[in-house]
Amino acid sequence: MRTGEAWPIAARRTQAVLALARRRVNVLWALLRDQRNYAPAPRPHTRPDA
């Protein structure tokens, strides 16, 4: 296959989506296992633009 063909891009996108989904599942599994609620990290304070 040549580099410019469309299917390798779709395959890489699918692989990336699956990797992100796997990370989410790992987090959800840990929350269920530890019987904890999701608590988002506090957002860093940024100064307003003047």
Results as ranks from 00 to 15, higher is better:
residue 41 A to N: 03
residue 50 A to Q: 07
residue 22 R to P: 01
residue 24 R to S: 11
residue 25 V to K: 09
residue 26 N to K: 08
residue 15 Q to V: 09
residue 37 N to R: 14
residue 18 L to D: 09
residue 43 R to M: 07
residue 37 N to Q: 12
residue 30 A to K: 02
residue 36 R to K: 07
residue 4 G to P: 06
residue 22 R to T: 08
residue 12 R to A: 13
residue 48 P to R: 04
residue 28 L to I: 02
residue 5 E to N: 06
residue 33 R to P: 00
residue 41 A to C: 03
residue 14 T to A: 14
residue 25 V to H: 07
residue 13 R to M: 13
residue 12 R to D: 08
residue 16 A to E: 14
residue 15 Q to A: 15
residue 33 R to Q: 00
residue 7 W to T: 15
residue 37 N to K: 10
residue 49 D to C: 09
residue 43 R to N: 02
residue 12 R to S: 06
residue 12 R to W: 08
residue 25 V to L: 13
residue 20 L to K: 15
residue 28 L to P: 00
residue 8 P to Y: 01
residue 45 H to P: 04
residue 20 L to C: 14
residue 22 R to Q: 12
residue 29 W to S: 09
residue 34 D to K: 01
residue 17 V to C: 10
residue 35 Q to E: 15
residue 49 D to T: 08
residue 24 R to G: 10
residue 27 V to F: 03
residue 33 R to S: 00
residue 25 V to I: 12
residue 36 R to L: 08
residue 18 L to R: 15
residue 50 A to V: 04
residue 18 L to S: 09
residue 7 W to K: 11
residue 9 I to P: 06
residue 4 G to R: 14
residue 35 Q to G: 05
residue 28 L to N: 04
residue 29 W to V: 10
residue 14 T to I: 07
residue 38 Y to L: 03
residue 46 T to A: 02
residue 5 E to D: 09
residue 10 A to P: 03
residue 19 A to L: 13
residue 29 W to N: 07
residue 33 R to M: 00
residue 16 A to C: 06
residue 32 L to E: 05
residue 27 V to P: 00
residue 9 I to C: 11
residue 41 A to E: 12
residue 50 A to F: 03
residue 37 N to V: 14
